[in-house]
Every structure is written in structure tokens, then in C-alpha cells.
Amino acid sequence: MKYWQKIMTVTWKDTIAEMRTREIISSVLVFTLLVIVIFNFAFGTNQTTLNLVAPGILWVTFTFAGVLSLNRAFVPEKEQGCLEGLMACPVSREVIYVGKMLASLLFMLIIEAIALPIFAFLFNLPVLSLQIIVITVLTTIGFVTVGTLFSALAVNTKAREMILPILFLPVVIPIIISAVLATGTALAGGSWSELASSLQIIAVFDVIFLVVSFLVFPYVIEE
């Protein structure tokens, strides 16, 4: 099998498991909806206030949704002893990383693809623009590159679900900052060139952490 085929096999395995249980997508989606509704109570229904806080609401929601779904990326593997099976496969650890990461990316994007229209609908905001979609996709890539690495790490600690946010959140702060900034500019009708500097930071983060996580991942799951 070629490299890409191996990666796709791992991704496909996760996708089938998810299609059967719908564990991640359905629960995280409900969670996302609840967070959006609760934020609505927290900030009231004043449209000017909402315009101001919308980027923050959106990214707090997506960040927590990310933590929640990434937490589940390795827990089932660990609980059912699948991780040993996966490592016994004739594929390198890096393949496992990329495969799992792509699966998490897919789930996150599906969740966001459903959550964004709901957000637009409930808050009466034009978040379905190409600009915001680009920001969301780039930032989500950043989330899953580090998130998959830390998720594999967290599942091998005593605290499991507790440890992922503690590791994940401080590291992704720069892209959350940039995403919030860019979303705010985009909602205010800013041009692409005004978004450039934020998008650059997110893109640099994505590339750097894809490489770093790829290199470091094998050490995390070795027995």
C-alpha cells in the first residue's frame, strides 16, 4: 500500500466507527447548540451587542467543541484496547497520526458546517461568507494538528479528559486570538487584505504544528 492509502485506511476506520455510533458528531453538535443558546441568555438579544460579541461567542463555542470531540479521538481506542491493535499494524506511527488527525478534522468540519448556519439563523448574522469559512477551516486545521497529538498524550495519563484542555488551550491561544480578530473584521465587512495578517498567523501555526506534531507523535504512543 502506498503512504496515502495507509493514511486513508486509518481515517476510514474512524469514519466507519463514527457512522455506526455517531458518538462524537451528535453529542458535540448538541453541546454546540446548547452553548450558543446559553450565550444568547448571557448577552441578551440586543443586535448591536451581539455584533460586538459574536466573534467571541463563535470561537469560544468552536474551541470547546474542539476540546470535547478531540477528547474522544483516542478514548474509545484506549478503552477497547484498539490502540495496541493499531500499533501492531504494519504502518508507521506517523501514519496513525495523520489518519487520526484527518478523521478528527472531518468530524470537526461537519460539526461546524451544521453549527454555522444555526449560528447565522439564531443571531441574525452574516457568518456564511467565504471569508468566515476560510477562517474556520484554517483554524480548525490548527486545532486538530495539536489536538490530536495532545489527545493521544492525555489518554495515557491518569486524568484523561481533564488534561487535554490544560495542554490544548494555552497552545492554541494565538490562533484563537487571530480567528476572533479576523472574524470581527470579516463581520464588519473588511476586505481580504485586512484579514491577511491574521490568516497568515493561523496558516503559519498550521504548517509548523503539522510538522512538529508529525515528528513528535511517535514518542507519545510508544509502549
Binding site: L149, F209, V216
Partner: peptide, 18 residues
């Protein structure tokens, strides 16, 4: 430690831009 160190320049860039 490795991830954190690599993150430092990006943190500085983003907070400055922010």
C-alpha cells in the same frame, strides 16, 4: 516542552497583532 517553545514566536506575533 517542544510544542510550547515552538509556540512562543506565534504567541508574541498574535498578541502584538491583537
Amino acid at each position: 516542552g517542544i510544542v510550547g517553545f515552538v509556540d512562543i514566536p506565534i504567541i508574541i506575533l498574535s498578541t502584538t497583532l491583537w
